[in-house]
């Protein structure tokens, strides 16, 4: 282990079960899933009890460096587009939404997305290595494999959606670091 004390409180079995049932439900049902057990559904919503924006299959790349990226599938359970505008985390000094673009020569570059991620009405947006993702920067402590990171997603209408994602060792998604270095 890289540190002697657990970085993040190990979540209770109950919370894990919510997280798992969420992802199971999301996988077996179509985009318009009426899953009410998602953490995202705790957000004050308008008329419908359906979650507005949820994150399933969320994970973050374990690291002992000072930045990492987070992935998952955003699902919009409403009939109108939702814009994920920003995110915050107790674990990181700075959180940014990034997109990856590939130029005609085939090399990919990452940059902070302008105007946030639009999750289409009743649809999904995949955050994945080599694509859109959430950057956690100025990490306060290493993120250990199997650990949990809590992140709050913030929509353009100011709603916050708390999510907890698991950390996995992953040797891909190297472009993050290239970009970081080129900034300096």
């Amino acid at each position: 282990m890289r540190t002697s004390r657990p970085l993040f409180p190990v979540i209770s079995a109950g919370l894990l079960s919510i997280a798992l049932s969420t992802s199971l439900a999301a996988c077996s049902s179509p985009a318009t899933s009426q899953d009410t057990s998602t953490p995202g559904s705790t957000v004050a919503t308008t008329a419908s009890a359906a979650p507005q924006l949820t994150l399933t299959d969320g994970w973050v790349k374990a690291t002992d460096e000072d930045m990492t990226s987070m992935f998952g599938v955003l699902t919009n359970g409403t009939g109108a587009d939702i814009v994920l505008e920003s995110a915050t985390s107790e674990s990181a000094g700075m959180v940014e939404l990034h997109e990856t673009t590939t130029d005609p020569s085939g090399s990919s570059t990452m940059r902070q997305v302008e105007g946030g991620f639009t999750v289409p009405a009743g649809g999904h947006l995949a955050l994945e290595p080599g694509g859109d993702h959430i950057m956690l920067m100025e990490l306060r402590e290493p993120i250990e494999p199997g650990g949990e990171v809590a992140v709050e997603l913030v929509t353009s209408t100011g709603e916050t959606i708390p999510v907890t994602v698991v950390a996995k060792d992953y040797s891909g998604a190297q472009e993050d670091y290239d970009m970081h270095e080129s900034e300096h």
């Binding site: 190990v10 996988c27 790349k61 992935f71 290595p129 199997g146 698991v166 996995k168 891909g172």
Partner: peptide, 27 residues
């Protein structure tokens, strides 16, 4: 605590893989 995290990760992988679903972070 390391063993706990290990078994959580592997259980989640196994639960998905055996049901024909990719684990998280599967390239």
């Amino acid at each position: 605590s390391g063993v706990t995290r290990l078994l959580r990760l592997l259980t989640e992988d196994a639960a998905r893989l055996t049901q024909g679903r990719a684990p998280l972070a599967d390239p």
